[in-house]
Computed example of a mutant assay.
Amino acid sequence: MNHFLCYFEFNFLNMRSFICFDLGETLINFNLKNRWYKSLKNEVIPLMWARLKQLTTSKPENIEFTRFQNVLYKSIAREFTIEKNTSFIDRIKIGLSRLNIDYNEEIKENLLDSFYKIIREKSTLFPEVQEILNYLNRRKYTIGLFSDTPWQSPGYLMDRLLKHHEIYSLIDFRLYSGDIKIRKPNPRTLLILSEKAKKRSEDMVYIGDKDVDIEVAFRCKIPSILVNRHKDKRVKLSRKPTYEIDSLLHLKEIISKL
């Protein structure tokens, strides 16, 4: 790939003022490709168990860890899958009820924090992200983010992750599937984000690394930019993006063409 590929041009030069990003593998590398389920079962749920055992209320009585692990894993990941709209919190409630463990706010915060702790420890910021976000901010672009969250986990966990990586303040508007119970490629995802920002869809461009990111942009009739950092691999796509880049820094070269 030579810097970036342009598949077709839009005629709306210099009109795209709302630059919107996906999160996972676009801005932040979760380092969990094809291992989300394994990490949930073997890292997140064991930490949840350890946290529960330390609580003064609702300790798991007469429950073996293996049963706890299997029941929670099934309720979070297998009954509803990662794509379904049932919230992460409701999935936890279902699992705990089957184990006869009373659900309360203390338990909720500890279990959600267990999930956050694992993804925070594994995640890294792609090296060019702060530079390109600062560049866009200096040029007065409005920056948005829409992300599907794993198992419809609440968006405030992703906000915590953005703060941890010191980019929260660089993004003007954020929206997550776990909060609105809609996932990409439903076009309402980006339309709700544009409404929140008081922007028109005609102002938007969407940047992501997956086929679903290109599809949601197509359904919203806005330009799309595919981030493919693996120059030797082609991303399997059902539609062509407007541009394909191997680094977010190439946005400097093409943003005015959108």
Rank of each mutant, 00 (worst) to 15 (best):
I19H: 11
H165Q: 11
F30G: 10
T81H: 06
D113T: 08
L111A: 06
I192E: 07
E25H: 11
E166T: 07
Y176L: 10
G144C: 09
Y168E: 14
L162K: 00
L136F: 09
Y176M: 08
Q152L: 09
K181E: 08
R219I: 07
S39C: 15
E131P: 05
I101P: 02
S75C: 11
V227M: 13
D22T: 10
S153R: 02
Y103N: 01
F173Q: 01
L125Q: 09
Q130E: 08
N42M: 01
N34R: 15
S247L: 07
I132R: 03
D148Q: 10
S238G: 08
E43M: 12
N2C: 01
R78Q: 13
E131K: 15
I192K: 14
E83G: 01
P223W: 09
E195D: 13
C6S: 11
N85L: 09
L170S: 13
P223E: 02
R160K: 15
V129T: 13
L112Y: 14
D203Q: 07
C20I: 06
E253C: 02
P241D: 00
K84W: 01
N100K: 15
Y135G: 02
E61A: 12
T242K: 11
Y135N: 07
Y168P: 00
K108D: 02
I214V: 15
S169W: 00
S224F: 13
R219W: 05
T81V: 10
T26C: 11
I207K: 09
